[in-house]
Computed example of a mutant assay.
Amino acid sequence: MHDQSRRLYDAARELRNAETPSAVARLLGVSPQTVKNWESRGVSLEGMMAAEEAIGCRSAWLRTGEGDMLTSKERRNQGRPPIKLVTPDSPKIVHVRSVVLTLRAGFTGVSSDAFEEDGDPFPVSQSWLQSNGFHLQDLVAARIRGQSMAPNLNEDDIAVIHLKSKRPIDGKVFAVNFDGEGVIKRLVYDYKRWFLYSDNPDQNRYRPQEASMAPNFIIGQVVAAQKFNL
């Protein structure tokens, strides 16, 4: 059985007491055969979005198994605390350049100098850099704008981006050059295509967008975050 179907069944059983594939199909408004097909092919994007609404499990979790299973709405209903992502503490602190993800003409994505400064630099631990094999000059910190990646990354949270990590990875969060604008989205590979996916459960407002994967499309991978306004 596909891992995505296994997670779907587990969530439906835990959150909605749905014990059979037919019960899951009724929850999602699809045919039992569709649910059965997912067992070998994986759950479709439409199925994941339907599961967010009907079951309360995050579509990103269904896709990759990473992060919290529950949507922010379901978590509030159950009284669970939000996820808090922080950079590790260390006696020795270094500072990552804070930037605005506004892309200049001729952007090549080769260094942090391609971006404009945005206030004070962001502190991270030297031990964190060393344990991950990062170099300070290959990192930038950017403030999250908007709520498309909530609840994992809310507005005014800080994302640390590794500019050398440009290979797309299914289910991971990246900063990308979308029509000349730097945005932070989750990359999802489905039906032999790449999509930009928002973590916000309101998928009517934050719909997936197909990713072009043109040269310099990927700015870098989000490798750490600091949450504020919890």
Results as ranks from 00 to 15, higher is better:
Gln33Ile: 09
Thr34Gln: 15
Lys36Ala: 15
Lys36His: 15
Asn37Val: 04
Glu39Gly: 15
Val43Ser: 12
Val43Met: 06
Val43Lys: 09
Glu46Trp: 02
Glu46Asp: 14
Gly47Ala: 13
Gly47Phe: 09
Gly47Asn: 06
Met49Ala: 13
Ala51Gly: 07
Glu52Ala: 02
Glu52Ile: 07
Glu53Gln: 12
Ala54Phe: 01
Ala54Val: 02
Gly56Gln: 03
Ser59Leu: 07
Ala60Pro: 00
Ala60Lys: 00
Trp61Leu: 03
Trp61Tyr: 15
Trp61His: 05
Leu62Glu: 02
Leu62Gln: 10
Thr64Asn: 10
Thr64Glu: 04
Gly65Pro: 06
Gly67Trp: 12
Thr71Lys: 06
Thr71Asn: 13
Ser72Glu: 15
Lys73Phe: 12
Glu74Asp: 01
Arg76Phe: 03
Gln78Arg: 15
Gly79Val: 07
Pro82Leu: 12
Ile83Ala: 13
Lys84Thr: 10
Leu85Arg: 10
Pro88Cys: 05
Asp89Cys: 07
Pro91Ile: 11
Lys92Asp: 13
Lys92Ser: 14
Ile93Glu: 11
Val94Phe: 08
His95Gly: 01
His95Pro: 00
Arg97Asp: 12
Arg97Tyr: 08
Val99Pro: 11
Val99Trp: 04
Leu101Val: 11
Ala105Lys: 10
Gly109Phe: 10
Val110Ala: 15
Val110Asn: 15
Glu117Cys: 01
Asp118His: 12
Asp120Phe: 08
Asp120Trp: 02
Pro121Glu: 03
Phe122Pro: 01
Phe122Val: 07
Phe122Met: 06
Pro123Trp: 07
Ser125Ile: 04
Ser125His: 02
Ser127Thr: 13
Ser127Ala: 14
Ser127Tyr: 05
Gln130Phe: 08
Gly133Thr: 12
Gln137Ser: 15
Asp138Thr: 06
Asp138Ala: 09
Leu139Glu: 10
